[in-house]
Every structure is written in C-alpha cells, then in structure tokens.
Nucleic acid binder design. Sequence first.
DNA 1: TTGTAAGCGTTATCAA
DNA 2: TTGATAACGCTTACAA
Lengths: 325, 325
Amino acid sequence: MEKVTMADVAREAGVSKSTVSQYLNKRYEYMSEKTKQKIEMAIDTLGYQPNFLARSLKQKRTSLIGIIVANITHYFSTEVSRAIEDFFHQYDLQTIVCNADDDPDKEKKYIEMLRAKQVDGLIIFPTGKNNELYESMINQGYPVVFVDRKVENLDVFSVITDNTESTCKAIQHFIENGHENIAFAVQPLTVSTRIERLEGYKKALNDAGLEVNPNYIIEASIPEMKKKLEELFSLDVKPTALFAANDRVFIALGEFLKEKGMKFGKDLDVVVFDNIPFSQMLETTLSFIIQPAAKMGTKAAELLYQQIRKEDHDPEVFVFPSDIK
Amino acid sequence: MEKVTMADVAREAGVSKSTVSQYLNKRYEYMSEKTKQKIEMAIDTLGYQPNFLARSLKQKRTSLIGIIVANITHYFSTEVSRAIEDFFHQYDLQTIVCNADDDPDKEKKYIEMLRAKQVDGLIIFPTGKNNELYESMINQGYPVVFVDRKVENLDVFSVITDNTESTCKAIQHFIENGHENIAFAVQPLTVSTRIERLEGYKKALNDAGLEVNPNYIIEASIPEMKKKLEELFSLDVKPTALFAANDRVFIALGEFLKEKGMKFGKDLDVVVFDNIPFSQMLETTLSFIIQPAAKMGTKAAELLYQQIRKEDHDPEVFVFPSDIK
DNA sequence: TTGTAAGCGTTATCAA
DNA sequence: TTGATAACGCTTACAA
C-alpha cells in the first residue's frame, strides 16, 4: 500500500517526473493533450496518490490550520471551531482540531507537534500555563491567535468576551429585581475568564453600594462544589440568587438543587455564564450569558489569516459583548 | 523564522548532522557527554525546532491519527473523540479532528488530505456518500474504522449502537404505559442510524399487534419539521407519545411545543435518541436513549490500533447497547 | 564514538 | 513543450 510514487507514474506514462508534477499542479499551459492523457491513465492504472508530506517539505507550507481547544466537549469551543473552519474553507485551507483537555502538558505537546508538522498557523484556547512556549512562538513571528482566555504580559492577538462587563450587568439585573444576597460560584481562579467574571460580580455590588460578602463567593473545583454549596445554604442569611460562572458549575448546582428539592426560579434565581446547547429547552426561569461564538471564531480566523499573509498589524485584543438571555 | 535546520545546529556544535540526529532521537549509547552538551547548547542558542515533515517523509509514519466527524458540534461526536484521544495518548500517538459537516465533498477532501499527509489511520463518522473512496482505502489496506453509521456492502471495522433494538424497547415502554398512538419524527432517511431507528419503531408496533399508521411517521428536514408537526397534531386522532430520532428533531419539537403551549410529559410523552449534554437538567418527564460514547470511542481506537500494528483480524461490526434514561 | 553519503517524494530552475 | 538535476530537512547504513 501507498508505495506508488511520482517516479512510477512517470515511468508508466513514459515522461519525466517534472512533467507529472506539472500535471498534478494543473500547470497545463505548455502541455500537449497527449501527455496529459498518458499521465492521467498512468495515475489511474497505478492508483497513484500524491504525498503531501513531500510537497510541503519542499514548499514550506501545509495549507493546514491548527486549533487547540481547552476542552473539545465544551459546546462553545466547538461552535468557535466550526466558524473558524468555515472561514478557512473559502481559502482552501483545512483545519484540524486538537484537544488539550485543559492539561498544560498536552497543550505543549500539541503546540510543538503542530508546529513541527509545519502547520501554517495556530488558534489556541490557552491553558495559560505555557508562557515560555507562547512567547517563543510569538517572538519567532509564528502566526497565532488566542481565543477565550487572555494571557497576561503577552503581546498577542486575542479574541475574548467582555466577561467583567456582562457579569456585572447580570448581577445588576439581580439587584434591580430586589435581590440583595447574591452568591457567586466559580472553579479555581486559574484562568482569566473566571477572574474577570468575579471582578464583574464585585463591581456590580460595589456600584450598587452593597457589601461583598466573602461567604457568598464559592471558589471550588467541581468535585468539591456540592460541599461548598451545602455550606452556602447553611448560612443564616441564605442567598436568593446565584451566578454560576460556567456550565460545569451549573451542572453541579443543578444536582445540588435536585437533591435538596429546590427549584430554579422559585427557590433560587440563577444566571449561567456559558453557551449551553438546548438551553432553549431548559426551564425558562433560568438566564444565560451567551457569547457570540461564531463571530468570535470568524474574527480569530481573520486575524490568523492576516498573519499568515504577512500583513503587518500590531497585536490587539478584540473584546466581544455577550448577550443575556 | 523557522529557518534553523539540523545543519545549522551541527555547524554551531561542531559536529555532523547525523550526530545531531542521534541526539534528537535519544540514541545516546555511544555519545560522549561532551558532544551531548555541545549539541544541547547549540539547539538552545539557535532555538532549533525539528521539522517532523522531513522526518515523517523518511520514516513513512507520522504518529498521527485522524478523526473525521460528521458534525463537530454534536455532543456524541465530541465524547467519542475524547475517548479515542485518551486511548492513543498512552501510545504517544496524537489525534486530530476534522469536521466534515455532513457534507460528502468536505468529507472527501478531509480523507484525501489526511491520507496525503500520511496520517497513520482514520476513524470516520461516515456521511455514507463516498463509497468509492471508502472502498479504495479499504482495498489498499489503509487502517480505518467507521463509527456511528454503517455503510452497506463494505467490509470494514465498524462500531455502532443497537439503533433498532433500543428504539424498539423505548416504543415498547410507551405501549406498556398505555400509549396506542405513537408518532415517530426523523430527518430524511439518508443514513443507517435513522433507518434503523425507524425499523425499531415499526417492529415494536408490529410485535404488539398495533397498526403502523403512516400519518404518524414524519420524515422531514429540520426546517420543515415544524410544519410537519403542525400537520401531525391536526389529525383527528392525535398522538399521545412521540419518538424524536435525534437531538435536532428534539429541538424542533421543543420549539413547536412551546409555541403551542404544550408541555412534555403532560401533553405529550417523549423519548429522544441522543446523548444530550445537560439532559439531567431538563424536565424529568423526558426520556433519553444514551449511547455509550466513551466505550464506543475506545473500541474504535483499539480496532484502529490493531490495524496500524498490522495485527490480522477480519473486519467486524461491533454493536453496543444503549441505555434508556 | 562520530562522520559520509544516499535516499524519502516532491517542486523549481534552467536547459534542451 | 518536456526533462535533468538540485534542493527541502531529516534518518540511517556503513565507514572511519
């Protein structure tokens, strides 16, 4: 299998390798109809399939774009990926997706692999834990765009949501509706998105002249989340509203409420920050902060394409507003 | 950028290319500590990054696995992909995911691209519309496994769910609960999964001695689905239960019911065939048929790995049971 | 213990 | 209009 090479085709067709190469690259200008047909036949009878590896080695580009997502089962990531793919499809660039699984080691491996495979550019949902590697890419002028999460002290094109702003708005909404005891649940503050959302929460409270009660802020990993919620709802003054900083927190919360026989909307007002598939099928008493995934993906793709084409722009951070629904 | 080659490193370190190559491949056996350090330093100061393209060209393998999913935003696909990735991670094979978007042309392009890039093997959620291409891969002994969908007349390793069986059981459940007017909604019958689910529906009715009423079977594309549902619920004898053949049908159904002010469980009993993220957060009156995505992914990966290692097995179809929840 | 040289399957340059 | 031939960056006998 896979041993038929251009040389075989050339021999079979009775022409030289270079002529076959011309044919394959559709440079027919000076090619006689007869040669064309001979080559066509030879390819057919031998079942020849070109080896792009060899071509790329020579041409120094692969026409491939790499996406490294933090978590491939996260709906937002797949929506963004699809938009990126749609964008590059029009330029005949193909897209491959790798899943870093929120693991900095895996992320590193994939970045190195994709670069070593000479992928033309990279769009990354960074874990934020490989700064040296990020820096070296950027310093070497390798085309790269970051999505979803900001990395501090790094001059790189980034596409993110207004995490602080939209969280702030959601909390203001709670306040307008008469809530005073508003809780905030988040996973460990290891990435910018979580930190910024917490900032938005605090800002809204401050702006409204409400006190930030540390007991109402839960920072816990998913397995610990339920225990912390237990504590939260054992307080003398229980919260009447809660902000779930992402979809996984939301799931933990849902399980907790179910166990306690509590209901969204009735016993607790809830806003979730994330694009949840099927959210339209969920109880209408819930609110969601929806990021414009498709637009963000397209923007990231554009930014990468500029770099690949060596258009000169200074790295910028593009912030997209999100919708509360 | 990216112009530092092994030759540069060799020059900088004052050794030959082959020695550098030895070093990179960790064949230290006969290497003096001094040479090792010299090379290490040279790599560091030059910022050398190996070009895997060149290596793969020589070695004729890439240590890369390709997954071609029909729809990357489909939760089931991402779950399967993750399991595949986890499996190969232990063997230091990396995984890339491409999204065919249920488009046979895109699927073809990706298959050809990945093969041309010398990917070591392919796991495909087939559109079912590229039979010639599938055949040529298989005949050439290229490692490939199909997931989720069966393709007729093709002797290939496949990993699928017992679509007929589990649909049948779900319908039996309806019948046991006293339902007699059970509807079935599905997208156009272009892939095996949909066809088999319909078969299961018919089988259950037949087994129970109930008549299959063609008016209760809706086969429509998603945009047309609501209109067809409208017709269904204008019948004199309206269905009291409905089987949604996948998640997208489910969404259309949800929108329809909302518009009509109808409620799941109260006005209509519903079973959905698909892994829906957050299904535990949805109304408890709904049932879901859940495919064992992780197990299926692992199995597919094992089957591919066997082929890559040239272990001799005859193609088989592995059918997994699914759960009703 | 290290170096030389051929080769992997293409493309590109230039000559014929 | 087509063909030699030299790259591309690496691996691998084999020689030294």
